[in-house]
Structures are given as structure tokens and as C-alpha cells.
């Protein structure tokens, strides 16, 4: 009976929202969004500070953000305050999980992992790590960035702990790494404030677009975000592997 009611309710809601979304003059139809009339047009042309120049890969120098990947430009440049908030969210959830688990070091007993897994993981592990680091460092040039790379590192760690069970208890340094990279991220912001006058402001020599060392502080920021995300995710995974302290 409850199911039928819920279904009925959701059907009407679906019908209503779809009619409203489709034929209201607010949302442009699917696929016809014009970038020009939205603020992301300046994010692409990187002319928030005013001077408008056409960007050619490999030539234009000292753009505002200077990152080839517009999304990274937004995430770590224009709206890096969101990302700071974002990192704190992840930090708190990791902290919360470890708080709830409590300070126990008894780990869940798990059966010995299969042969293929043990050998296979040894082979895949280096590839994973390299690609992860690559994604983090090339955040401003190619798709991906700190978060995605960090996730890859964490999955590498997960693979490792799945293959041999003693690995996870051996890692102690994650908490430190997490705290360190978070602090450095804020320090970068404060440095931006002292040097350039505004919190989290990028330095103005952002190099030529498309090169490795371009887009000012953005790659540095993304590097630390990558490390932080990696360590936090591994921390959460390790916490889930722990056995509950009998409170």
C-alpha cells in the first residue's frame, strides 16, 4: 500500500516537474545553452580583470589564471574558495568516521586473498600510482585534477590492502599528510592575501598557457589537494576495515 502511494506521488511529481522544466522560459532546452550569456564566458576567456585577449595555445603569456583546462581554472582559480570548503567537507567526514570508529587497532579478520589478486595487484599497482600522480600534476592541462588523482591513489592503496592484509595497519602517516596539505592550502591562500591583496589570489606570472609550469599557484594547490584527498580516502577506507571498539 505504501509503495503504491509513493509511486503515485512520485509519478505526479515527475509529470509536474518535467512539464515545468520542459516548457518554462527559464531553462534553455537541452543542448541549446549559450555560453555567452553566462558568467563562464569570462571564465573561458579569462578576462575577469578586464583586458580581453584571444588565447592561443602555447603563445599567450600571463593570463589571469593561465590554465588550459577551464574547469581547473574555475575550481582552483576563480572559485577556489568553494574548493577550500570542499576540502574541509572531506576532512570533516574523514575525521567524523575516525571519531566514530574510536581509537582501536583491532582489525577485521579476513580470509587470505586469492593468488591472482596478490600477483595481479603487484603488477597493476605501479601503473595506477603513476597515472594518479600524472593526473594530479597535469590538472591544469589535461582533464582531471587533484580530486580525481587523489581518488586513483586511494584506489591503489585499497587494492594493496585487499591483496595483503598487513599493509593497512602499517600506514600511520596519513593523518599527518592530510593535516599538512590542508594547512599548506590555506597558507597559500593567506600568502595570496598578503602578496596580492586578496585571499587565494593567484600570482600574476602565470607563464604561457599549455606548458607544465603555467597557471601560477594552481598546480601547486591542486598537488596538495590531490595528496589530501588521497590520504583522506585511504584513511576512511582503513577506518571501515577496523573492528568496532566495544563502547
Amino acid at each position: 500500500m505504501k509503495k503504491v502511494l509513493a509511486l503515485l506521488l512520485l509519478a505526479t511529481l515527475a509529470f509536474m516537474t518535467i512539464t515545468l522544466v520542459v516548457d518554462n522560459n527559464l531553462l534553455p532546452d537541452f543542448g541549446e545553452t549559450k555560453v555567452e550569456n553566462s558568467v563562464s564566458d569570462t571564465y573561458i576567456k579569462q578576462n575577469a580583470m578586464g583586458e580581453n585577449q584571444d588565447i592561443k595555445f602555447g603563445e599567450t603569456k600571463n593570463l589571469e589564471i593561465g590554465s588550459a583546462n577551464a574547469i581547473t581554472g574555475i575550481v582552483a582559480g576563480y572559485r577556489s574558495f568553494d574548493t577550500l570548503g570542499e576540502v574541509t567537507v572531506l576532512f570533516i567526514s574523514a575525521l567524523g568516521v575516525s571519531l566514530m570508529i574510536g581509537t582501536t587497532d583491532s582489525w577485521m579478520k579476513r580470509s587470505q586473498s586469492g593468488f591472482i589478486l596478490r600477483v595481479g595487484s603487484k603488477a597493476i599497482l605501479p601503473i595506477l600510482m603513476i597515472v594518479g600522480v600524472y593526473i594530479i600534476t597535469h590538472g591544469h592541462l589535461s582533464p582531471g585534477g587533484g580530486f580525481q588523482g587523489g581518488a586513483m591513489i586511494a584506489s591503489a592503496m585499497l587494492l594493496l590492502s585487499l591483496s595483503d592484509h598487513e599493509f593497512m595497519p602499517k600506514i600511520k602517516a596519513f593523518k599527518m599528510l592530510e593535516g599538512l596539505s590542508g594547512t599548506i592550502y590555506i597558507l597559500i591562500g593567506l600568502v595570496g592575501m598578503i602578496l596580492m591583496g586578496h585571499f587565494l589570489q593567484n600570482i600574476d606570472q602565470t607563464g604561457t598557457i599549455g606548458e607544465l609550469f603555467s597557471a601560477g599557484l594552481i598546480p601547486v594547490v591542486y598537488l596538495f589537494i590531490g595528496l589530501k584527498v588521497g590520504s583522506e580516502l585511504t584513511g576512511i577506507i582503513s577506518d571501515f576495515m577496523k573492528k568496532e571498539a566495544n563502547i
Binding site: V39, S40, I44, I74, L141
Partner: peptide, 20 residues
């Protein structure tokens, strides 16, 4: 995709903000 490489130009980028 709104990533600048040698072969594409910024004119026909998709809106990057929702992706961020």
C-alpha cells in the same frame, strides 16, 4: 570539452561552470 589544446579554440567550449 573546455580544455584548450593546440587543435581547438575557446570559441566552441561547453559551459565549464556546471562541471566545476
Amino acid at each position: 570539452a573546455p580544455i584548450l589544446t593546440g587543435s581547438n579554440s575557446i570559441k566552441d567550449f561547453v559551459d565549464p561552470l556546471p562541471q566545476a
